[in-house]
Each structure stands twice: as C-alpha cells, then as structure tokens.
Design a protein around this nucleic acid. Structure first.
Ligand code: FES
Ligand code: FES
Lengths: 144, 144
DNA sequence: TTCTAATAGGATAATTTTGTCCGATTTAAG
DNA sequence: CTTAAATCGGACAAAATTATCCTATTAGAA
C-alpha cells in the first residue's frame, strides 16, 4: 500500500507526537528503537519530514525531534504520505495505466475510485494527535 | 497498490478473456502490444498465470493463450492478485508492522481494515467476464 | 520429415527501493 | 575553549523489482 519509507515516516511521526505530548524531545536513536526501523534510513526520512515542516528538528547536543501540540492537531496523515510517497496513491490507476482518467477509464476504474477515495478521506481526516490516543494507554502499538 | 507484475497480469488476463469471447486465441506478442507492456516480462507473468490455471497456454505454431467461457465467469480478480502478489494486500499492516493483527493493532488498524476489506470484496466479487464488458464497446480501456 | 511460429525457462541486466557509512555541522554543558 | 551528543547530507552498498536475451521445446502445416 505505502512504501517502506512512508510506513516508517508514519510510525516515526506518531511516536514523536506521542512523546511531544509529554514535552519530551526524542532522538533519532530512540525513535528507530521504539518503532523498530533501520536507524540510518529513518534519519533520511526524518530529514524529509523536517524539510516539509511536518516535524521540527533541533541539532546539537540535547537535540532531537518534536512536534508542537497545535501542529499535531492540524497535521493529517495525508501530509506525511504526500511528502514521502507523493500523489501516486490518489493519481495512480489500479491497473497501472499512466494516470487514472475518468474519460478513458480502465475496467476497474469505477469500483477502484470509491476505495481510493475512502482511503484518501481516511488519511485527510486522521490527525497525528488522534494517532497517539490509543498508544498511551497500550491499546495500539508501533512495534511488536 | 499492486506491483507492476500484477497490473500487467490483470490487464493481460482481461485482454485474453475478451478475445476468448470471440473464440480467438492470442499470442504473447499481441497481448503485450494491446496492453502496452514489456513483452518478455509479460511472458514471465503469463507463465505464472498458466501454472496457476488462470489462463490456458498452448505451445507450438498457432499456439497462444486463452480462457474458457466458464472459467472467466468463475475467475475473480482476487485469484490473479493472489497468484502474483500473494496475500500482502490482505495480510499487510497499513503502518508496516510484520502482519496486521487485531490483538495488537497499530493506530490505523480499525480504519484501515475497513478500506482493505472493501478492496478485498471488490477483487473477490469482480469476475474476468465482467472486466470485458465495457472493453468491447469502447467504454473502458487497457491502454492509452 | 522439415520448417516455422509459438510458449517455457534459465541466465543476466537495469532500475528502483531500501539500507549503511562517514565526515561536517550544530549546540549545550563543563 | 573543549568536548560530547546530536542532526545533516553526500556517497555508497545491498536487495528487490522490473526488464531483456537466448536457447530449448512444442506442435501445426506444407
Ligand atoms: S483509470 Fe484505472 S483506476 Fe481510474
Ligand atoms: S495492525 Fe496495522 S493495519 Fe492491522
């Protein structure tokens, strides 16, 4: 569904948000450990999220990553997916035609757009703050 | 969403089904041309579909690929996706945890399963025969 | 029987994605 | 000022996916 990079990005942002709620800035090392991701690869993804103003990065000693309380309310999952995977999910045709195009649709188009729209709506309506809700009380997990 | 291989497989099977409706057995070359796919790669995919009894292959001169009328009614898109991409779509977690597991769900699990189930149902309920309907009358396309 | 056109299948190559390494830079503490 | 801990960023490496090439095999037709 999403690329590995995007999956790591979603998990990382969620973990940062959760810790930011407690006022804790977190390091790359801690993030990679808590979401079970390759550390150097995760660094690249966090750089990208930082450039897209999705997470805030602080360099130097005692630095790390954080997300402000107001940001994690406004920030939807779609922003993260857009930043990492681009619009392939929304624009791509289910059968792999160059782009999805209702004027010259592929045979699954009408059924596929419904599913894709549901996915899009879910991503656009789910905030990072919501993502943290179950995590804190141990109902949901970012690693097993 | 699907791998390139799977997209080619779905398009190829659909084209074969459509031609089989007219009693025409089609060659690899024709298929690749009509669905705009790399010929040798498409050959691999058709081998796989043939081994999984999704298409029938006939070797030698005047050979090619075909799908019987009864088969294209029974055959659902899910069979093709299963054969090529396996169960990653159904079993995979939206955030990339090892497997999707309701007992230790990720933060998007509850929302994600609904979308994934819709996709699964669509694939399981759409027959290859249905796929050919719009194609013959020029309402849908396998290439642009 | 021989020729020809087709799929089968193994080996290999190119590309993309994923992942690692290392030095540069930044920043706070001592 | 020096040191230590952290991100940044470029180069590189590994793995997976996509794509190509070539030979073997098959089977119909002349
Ligand atoms: S054209 Fe294929 S999904 Fe829209
Ligand atoms: S556990 Fe993540 S989608 Fe089910």
């Amino acid at each position: 569904m999403f690329s590995k990079a995007c999956e790591y990005g979603l998990r990382a942002a969620t973990y940062i948000a959760m810790q930011s709620l407690d006022g804790r800035r977190v390091s790359l090392k801690e993030i990679a450990d808590k979401i079970d991701s390759p550390i150097a690869f995760t660094a690249k993804i966090l750089q990208l999220l930082s450039k897209n103003n999705i997470v805030e990065s602080v360099k130097g000693a005692y630095g790390g990553f954080e997300i402000s309380r107001t940001q994690m309310d406004k920030l939807k999952l779609s922003a993260i997916v857009d930043a990492i995977d681009g619009d392939t999910i929304y624009a791509g045709c289910g059968l792999g035609l160059k782009e999805c195009n209702a004027d010259k649709p592929c045979p699954v188009h009408s059924k596929f757009v419904d599913i894709r729209n549901d996915l899009r709506e879910m991503l656009e309506n789910t905030s990072l703050y919501e993502m943290t809700a179950g995590l804190e009380v141990g109902l949901t997990f970012l690693k097993r």
